[in-house]
Amino acid sequence: MNTISPVMPSRTKSLTIGDADWVRYALVVLTLAIIGVFLILPLATVLIEAFAKGWTAYASSLTHPDTVAAIKLTLLTAAITVPLTTVFGVSAAWAIARFEFRGKSLLITLIDLPFSVSPVIAGLIYVLIFGAQGWFGSWFSDHDIKIIFAVPGIVLATLFVTFPFVARELIPLMQEIGHEEEEAALSLGASGWQTFFKITLPNIKWGLLYGVLLCNARAMGEFGAVSVVSGHIRGLTNTLPLHIEVSYNEYDFVGAFASASLLAGLAVVTLVVKTFLEWKQKQDLKA
């Protein structure tokens, strides 16, 4: 019935129950201006600087062996941490949403710990534990295992900071969905795994993907914690964010901004997918 629309003059409405028109416009313009100056402009700068010396310079800096090594290491780190965080997140959310036990609220607080600790401290913790002067440092060096200033340290530091993402997303979701559908599946003769894969997983899949996505963005973009444990060994222990910093410090602006454009691209993709997942999850919960 779109043809019949209320004949309410909007000016009267805004005068009686809302703010005057100029307030609305001023607020919208202000918001757009802030977003423009602080978000769009820097993002545009990244692209402008990356292409400052043309396509070929952009392409060659991205195919530089050090850049390629940094990209590979970043992907490897994400490939290890994201599945681990996902498994941890699902188990923790399952335990918290399904069982009553002593210390449950303490556990929820602990899961949030990485959010409240500065990433630099997270990196430092691993240096103190596994570094040459650390608690276990001598044992590891005796056995010729390198953790700090090597890939394992980077993975550990990334794990620490990405730890809560999936769990945080799933706990409220699983609490809201409840346990009844799973009980119904069990009463119909399904095994625990069948119940998980056929009932639980389909119910939480959008929330799970959402958590995985945020976790992945953080894993690839993490700077602070990784910076402390990496040692900045070019071509070996530089992840993409570290590589950007090193390049920039060496006045290789095209190189720095070319790499930065990759992370910016990841951010944009993340944003789009995130919006889609949020929408899907809302649809599912409505059902």
Partner: peptide, 17 residues
Amino acid sequence: KNRHIGFVFQHYALFRH
């Protein structure tokens, strides 16, 4: 799983997907 009972839940617990 092994009791061979049929259980109907108060809020039905139909599989929504």
